Simulated assay, not measured.
Amino acid sequence: MSHKVGFIYAHPDDETFLSACLIRQLADSGEQPVLLLATKGDAGKKNGDVSHLTNEELGDLREQEMLQAASILGLAAVEQLGLPDGKLNSVDATDFLQGVIQFINQHQLKVIFSFPEDGGNFHPDHMAISRMAASAVLSGKCPSVQKMYYCVSNTLLEQGHQPSISVDTQPQWEMKARALMAHASQIFAIERYFGDLVSCPPNRRVEAFVLAWERGEWWPVKQEKSVLDDLL
């Protein structure tokens, strides 16, 4: 039986930066990971050959890049809310939340991943989608969800929360690098974070996730072998 696992992020490439190897492992084990993005990333920095594009053109390009990355990662579906990039704090919260709830229920997700409350790096869009993911889970309108994970951040670690699941990217680095390169319009930002992509940088080697919520309990302390552990 395949358990649906969903990743809920703000921009195209968030999924690859933070969870490429976990997504690929789930796909390779027969699961059907799916992705929801709040925006097209149309306000992203325009690097090199795409510096002349309008925001609308950049958004269209990033959608195509996302499809290429999704194929590499093994994502079963990618959906966009199409909200304004860089302005998630200003959109109608009711409609925003309903879009997330609809995605979760459409795919009957049992496990979801998103940013922690601090967005990982205090990016306002990251923080906004984190709030909406948590609000959807707590709304009582997504009964399929049994677990919610946050990507590890310095704030979570400082608060004493330790990863429940960690993935060593070294064995899958070639795959992750290809998925990163698929987001070619953002290559300057990617190289600032990961270097030249030839080898896995030691400080970016691990994808780590904290189990934030499980069937009504916040911050259960546990070490897991799989994000599918203990699902009902």
Results as ranks from 00 to 15, higher is better:
residue 109 L to K: 03
residue 205 R to V: 10
residue 156 L to W: 09
residue 202 P to K: 02
residue 137 V to A: 04
residue 181 M to F: 09
residue 157 L to F: 10
residue 150 Y to E: 07
residue 198 V to K: 13
residue 176 K to A: 02
residue 123 H to N: 14
residue 112 I to C: 15
residue 113 F to Q: 04
residue 133 A to N: 03
residue 138 L to T: 07
residue 177 A to D: 12
residue 153 S to N: 05
residue 152 V to C: 12
residue 143 P to S: 05
residue 204 R to Y: 11
residue 162 Q to R: 08
residue 208 A to T: 12
residue 199 S to A: 03
residue 191 E to S: 13
residue 131 R to D: 01
residue 128 A to I: 03
residue 146 Q to D: 00
residue 119 G to A: 05
residue 142 C to S: 12
residue 181 M to W: 07
residue 123 H to S: 02
residue 183 H to L: 00
residue 177 A to F: 10
residue 114 S to V: 11
residue 113 F to L: 00
residue 149 Y to Q: 11
residue 113 F to K: 03
residue 163 P to Y: 13
residue 154 N to F: 14
residue 174 E to Y: 10
residue 160 G to T: 15
residue 103 F to G: 02
residue 157 L to A: 08
residue 161 H to W: 14
residue 135 S to E: 13
residue 209 F to R: 01
residue 187 I to G: 02
residue 177 A to M: 04
residue 186 Q to T: 05
residue 155 T to P: 09
residue 164 S to P: 05
residue 106 Q to W: 15
residue 199 S to Y: 02
residue 132 M to T: 04
residue 110 K to Q: 11
residue 209 F to V: 06
residue 170 Q to G: 02
residue 163 P to H: 03
residue 117 E to H: 15
residue 185 S to M: 07
residue 208 A to C: 00
residue 140 G to E: 08
residue 158 E to W: 12
residue 115 F to C: 04
residue 107 H to F: 15
